[in-house]
Design a protein around this nucleic acid. Structure first.
Lengths: 155, 155
DNA sequence: AATAAAAAGATCAAAAATAGTCAAAGAAAA
DNA sequence: TTTTCTTTGACTATTTTTGATCTTTTTATT
């Protein structure tokens, strides 16, 4: 039913939740073996589901004894808050990036599912199609205002 | 002598009723196989019988593992709501008008105060300034999608 | 110490698996 | 007969999966 990539994503997130750590170290080859797939499939999952704007940072080492680490970035962290603000202050934001960013806010419970759906419906490509070549600029402005609103003391 | 399109429509509606779910997920290819027709026939059915103003919203994903979802909207036989969707679907909407519209939704408790603030921050003139002369068209598209989202039976 | 071999992981593009679009052909209704 | 609705298929777009090739790091050999 679900794709292999989805299964690997779920597996990694469950591992992290179970370990109650925000850092998980794995071997690419082993993980690929668990799912009987080519190792580069793991890279695909990391690139599409564990990007910085999605709230995860990945580091790795090659060579014998190589591995990769997935580090969950917590919004509560002061430094992360700055990163977030920097991210939304960018003047352009494509849909993929905004989606990752909102997914993260949802995972961190900064927004609830309904708010996630609402915001997504407003920033999707269809909503902004009339904006033509300014689509990503409009989306960036919207995302910035979303964050400002969420941070308002009286929200 | 019902058409193929009618049969597919009935099949989908029966599936939804039977599952007592507000949301049904199917694979276009599989469904086409069930009815021994070309996949694009499924699109025809969705476009002619499951449009927003008919009380259903469809989302889909392409690619390996692709699918489409049919989501029931809580407009039931509310003709007025369907008309409202149709109306919002075509119009341009300036900020004042959108503000009035959202004010009513707030008063009628369709949205809460936080959702109101969030939506307002995204449709205000500043957010849409980059859209230039298409501002009102973008706002209308956003408002339509807000309405669809609020009406989703699974919201 | 220098070099070669082995053991990882990264990259990138091709192939596979879906879904969407659009226009033409066919069928049914007016 | 004209118009509208349905069916089909060729072409396009998107996402995932796979594999060949490249890079980095460690380990073994000389």
């Amino acid at each position: 039913m679900s794709t292999l990539a989805n299964k690997i994503e779920r597996y990694i997130k469950e591992m992290m939740a179970a370990a109650e750590k925000n850092c998980l170290e794995l071997k690419r080859k082993d993980l690929a073996e668990v799912f009987s797939c080519v190792p580069s499939q793991i890279n695909y999952v990391l690139e599409t589901r564990f990007r910085d704007e999605q709230g995860y940072h990945v580091v790795s080492r090659r060579g014998a004894g190589g591995y990769f680490q997935i580090i969950r970035l917590e919004v509560a962290d002061n430094k992360e808050m700055k990163n977030l603000i920097a991210a939304v202050s960018e003047t352009e934001m494509d849909f993929k990036k905004a989606e990752g960013f909102l997914g993260r806010l949802l995972e961190e419970a900064v927004i609830n599912r309904n708010e996630y759906m609402l915001i997504m419906s407003m920033i999707n490509r269809e909503s902004l199609s009339s904006a033509a070549e300014t689509e990503d600029r409009v989306r960036a402005a919207m995302m910035k205002n979303v964050l400002i609103t969420l941070l308002r003391a009286d929200y």
